[in-house]
Nucleic acid binder design. Sequence first.
DNA 1: GCTAAAACGAGAACCATTCTCAGCATATGG
DNA 2: CCATATGCTGAGAATGGTTCTCGTTTTAGC
Lengths: 145, 145
Amino acid sequence: MAQHSYPPDPDVMPLGPRQRALLAVLQEANAELSGQELHERLRQGSQRHGLATVYRNLRLLQRSGLVRCRKLPNGESVYAPLERDDHHLTCVSCGHSEPLPICPVATGGLGLSKVLLQGFKPLFHTFEIHGLCLSCQQSEPLSHG
Amino acid sequence: MAQHSYPPDPDVMPLGPRQRALLAVLQEANAELSGQELHERLRQGSQRHGLATVYRNLRLLQRSGLVRCRKLPNGESVYAPLERDDHHLTCVSCGHSEPLPICPVATGGLGLSKVLLQGFKPLFHTFEIHGLCLSCQQSEPLSHG
DNA sequence: GCTAAAACGAGAACCATTCTCAGCATATGG
DNA sequence: CCATATGCTGAGAATGGTTCTCGTTTTAGC
Ligand SMILES: [Mn+2]
Ligand SMILES: [Mn+2]
Ligand SMILES: [Zn+2]
Ligand SMILES: [Zn+2]
């Protein structure tokens, strides 16, 4: 059996304290958080936190395969731990996005043939159904702003 | 048999000339186009075209269920006719996004039970695999910018 | 035609994200 | 210790795609 509790993994680089803090906030949260929300929660604590560092480390965590991200219709990016496999219904009219409690993707464990991936290393997937929410269907059909 | 070649459909509102032009450009194109690219192609023609109108009409076409949209990692939105069912591999490191020539979604014709949709009217879906492209895997593992 | 309503274009405003850069922390090794 | 190199950080400026504002133009109804 292994002698170390954390056998060295060449693919994984040790996380800095800022990155661990980010990950902790994401894991405690029960929903996706935006960069700004993360920044706000982090600066509740004792240390100083800059917004640039939040975004820098979110990018690094994403590249390391620890954090996932998707873009809302309003342009914000929202983040969650990689292991969460949530999907969403998103309204093309008002932008409201709510969880869809199933994963309708056939490739549960990635049945994708390697030839299709062509060397691409998958980390996570996003699936989203876009359409009209109930309240937007009931509003006036269409009009310019 | 029907007397009109275009029987009135209460769900579909007649498109204006600007909207028809937008749709035509999208259908001629063999790839998704950004708002700015659409604007540029439209102003090649004879009439004047404003950027605001391009975005206004893209929103209307999307609400009418004629155009789909997704956001690239760099923040741009790209548009295509609704009937195209393309999906993508997107690199979390460099942002490059390339077509994935299959639709791995189990809900081909939407096997989603109505109870899950709760009145939501689906128009299209997006499916994307996020990970590391080959060239980003080969670059230096990680570092701040 | 004439008038009200709708659509439009140009440019300003918006705002989430990224960039810049000087200061701080850490490592190293002499 | 001290010198120095390297990397990380925070504040604020810059960026850039999209949306808003508003005066003008087009359209639709009479
Ligand atoms: Mn899934
Ligand atoms: Mn599909
Ligand atoms: Zn809605
Ligand atoms: Zn890449």
